[in-house]
């Protein structure tokens, strides 16, 4: 199936727009590599950038189902496969760049993957993504039936492997990894709420947003306290200081509140709003 047509074979501007958006970061990084604007260690920079987009795309893929429910954007399902396959492609490019940076010394690449725990789990995540991408065709979905749904639940484990890989590879500052982890927990919270049959009203979503933002701050403190010598009290305190950066907890809160906004907009009865002025005039 061509990525910019819908199931009936008609051209879909929506799908084309998503496809282009998925290609843009890779293109941008590729141009940087080709024109030599990525600094003294360009392949390493490209590896990190592509890796960052891999985890971002993975989170966007995982956002499809909650957004369909909360915002009622049913059409999102039509791009979920494309998002997932793009995540796999970026992960594959990420590894390929690492291999290129190791001068294509496959023996060393293999031994590094075996020896370094963060590379081992990163590689395991990539193998998982390959498995999901390989079973993402219509034929495979039909053939696997109920097993397909079960198999593709592996994406949650893969996301956790990817996040752990992100955290462990960070030198000292884990801010970006924390933002991604917070968003992952937020997306999991929506699923949990649905499972326990909690109605996702704007009020409930606000409670989730605030709760997960607080949890993110807690997660960050636990990381710094266990993996570094940074004073955890200062990390907590840093959340009230905006002079250097907007800290992870606020990014996660902002994401959660954006979802609340979406739910509020969805809740507005537009037909009544449009009718109101007419009624006033008559």
């Amino acid at each position: 199936m061509i990525p910019w047509t819908d199931r009936s074979g008609r051209f879909s501007p929506f799908k084309l727009a998503i496809l282009v958006a998925l290609l843009l970061p890779g293109l941008y990084i590729g141009i940087g590599l080709a024109t030599g604007t990525l600094g003294a260690k360009p392949i390493e920079v490209a590896t990190h950038e592509i890796g960052l987009w891999t985890i971002r795309f993975l989170m966007i893929t995982l956002a499809v189902t909650p957004l369909r429910v909360i915002a009622g954007w049913r059409r999102l399902i039509h791009v979920r496969r494309m998002l997932g396959v793009a995540t796999f492609c970026y992960a594959l490019i990420h590894l390929s760049l690492y291999v290129a940076d190791q001068k294509f010394n496959l023996g060393r690449v293999a031994s590094e993957i075996a020896v370094r725990f963060y590379l081992t789990i990163g590689f395991a995540g990539l193998v998982g993504l390959a498995m999901l991408a390989a079973t993402s065709t219509d034929g495979a979905i039909r053939k696997l039936g109920k097993k397909w749904t079960l198999l593709h639940k592996a994406v949650y484990v893969i996301a956790m492997l990817g996040l752990a890989h992100f955290f462990i590879q960070s030198k000292i500052d884990v801010s970006e990894a924390t933002v991604m982890a917070g968003i992952f927990v937020l997306l999991m919270a929506y699923r949990l709420a649905k499972r326990v049959k909690l109605k996702l009203t704007p009020g409930a979503l606000t409670v989730i947003a605030v709760g997960i933002a607080a949890l993110t701050a807690g997660l960050e403190v636990v990381w710094y306290a266990s993996a570094t010598g940074v004073d955890p009290a200062r990390i907590l305190q840093a959340n009230l200081d905006f002079s250097f950066m907007v800290r992870p907890t606020w990014w996660v809160l902002g994401t959660g509140l954006a979802v609340v906004l979406v739910a509020l907009v969805k809740g507005i009865d537009w037909s009544r709003l449009k009718r109101a002025p007419l009624e006033a005039a008559s």
Binding site: A238, D241, S243
Partner: peptide, 14 residues
Amino acid sequence: DKSFASGQRQFWYP
């Protein structure tokens, strides 16, 4: 001196 060294605004580093 964090007035010119922006990285030192990360006061959680020693």
